[in-house]
Amino acid sequence: MSNTVDLTDKILVVGGGRMGSAIIEGWLKQGVSPASIYLIDNNRDALKVYSDKGLHTFESVENVPQGLEFKVFLLALKPQIIVKHLAQFNRLISPSTCLVSVAAGVMVQTLLDMLPNVNHVVRVMPNTPAMIGKGVSVGFSESRSLFETLIETLFASLGKFYWVSNEEEMHAVTAVSGSGPAYLFYFAQCFIEAAQSLDLEAEFAKELALNTLIGAARLIEESGIDVETLRQNVTSPNGTTQAGLEALMSNNEVKERVEACCVAARKRSIELA
């Protein structure tokens, strides 16, 4: 089997929710032919959107024509749905199909047990910034050597892509990059509320806080300077920033809560597996 991607190869996508849609949109921007993508979802509104874009759309597996061979099967369903309904998709898998699962916590062996026709599984943990091409995706596969170029090409338009060599590491990946955007969104929420508490007009306080976060993130990305040095560079002795940081860093409470947050998310990922 070729480890490269032909942009006309047939791709099956099961699940057109936020992540499935983000991946599809990334593929379309990358030049994957809409006519090569077959989408199964029970949301008629979502199917209408993608049907209008030229994708083949189906409300159920029963509607997919017999005899089609898919090079890639993207599984973008929630874990609890997979447990109940995955087996029905077995007939759509050929010996050369690469199953790509973006379901958090669902282990490779679970997928192999539920889909006897599957020979090759790649687990990928993306995150929601993939919707704007700024995502972080991490993959694991025992067949990595066969599909490395294929998977990296398919996920290139979604942001950064990395591999791990041990599936157990996917629990930590889920806790950091998979769940991480939500942690930062919560910090942004707290920062906005703190800004508004300082008697600034509410909308102005929100813009001030959010644009400060966005600018700081861009500085991290573009400066190449490590975050500790960036923090030190902006902290004048006995100045306002030092006063604020001393309050924030008091007793290492924030650091400990961030660590506890990641540990709890990893623990939950292990439980889901």
Rank of each mutant, 00 (worst) to 15 (best):
T174Q: 02
E271I: 08
L230K: 10
E62I: 10
R91A: 13
G26M: 05
S33D: 01
V32I: 14
H85F: 08
I151M: 01
F58R: 10
V136Y: 02
G31V: 04
I220F: 15
A76D: 01
W27F: 03
M125V: 05
D113E: 14
H120L: 06
F185I: 10
Y162G: 00
K71T: 12
L230P: 15
S94V: 02
D6P: 04
N166F: 02
T128A: 05
R257H: 13
Y162W: 09
R44K: 14
V64P: 01
S179Q: 06
T128I: 12
I220N: 14
P237K: 12
V108C: 03
A205M: 09
W163Q: 03
I220Y: 12
T8G: 00
C98Y: 01
D9Q: 14
G20N: 04
E246I: 09
E59N: 13
Y50L: 01
H171Q: 07
R144N: 02
S137T: 10
S269T: 00
G133T: 11
M114C: 10
Y38E: 04
I81F: 03
N127C: 06
I225C: 14
T149E: 11
V106R: 03
N42T: 13
S165T: 07
Q242E: 15
D6E: 12
R44W: 05
D45S: 12
L158P: 04
Q232G: 09
R91T: 11
M249W: 01
T149S: 13
E201R: 13
Y38V: 10
V164Q: 01
V124D: 02
Y50G: 00
N251I: 08
F73N: 05
N166Y: 03
E142D: 08
C261A: 15
W27D: 02
Q109M: 13
E259K: 10
C190D: 09
A35H: 07
G178Y: 03
L112P: 00
S250P: 04
T235I: 14
R91F: 13
V122E: 01
V136P: 03
K255M: 11
L154H: 03
N238E: 15
K255H: 14
M170Y: 09
P129D: 09
C261S: 13
A46G: 12
P95A: 10
L112C: 01
L92W: 02
E142M: 06
M249I: 00
V164L: 01
Y183E: 09
P79V: 02
E69G: 05
V13L: 06
E201Y: 08
M249R: 01
Y186W: 08
L219N: 08
S141F: 01
K29S: 11
R268N: 05
S143P: 00
I93R: 03
N3P: 03
M1Q: 07
T212W: 12
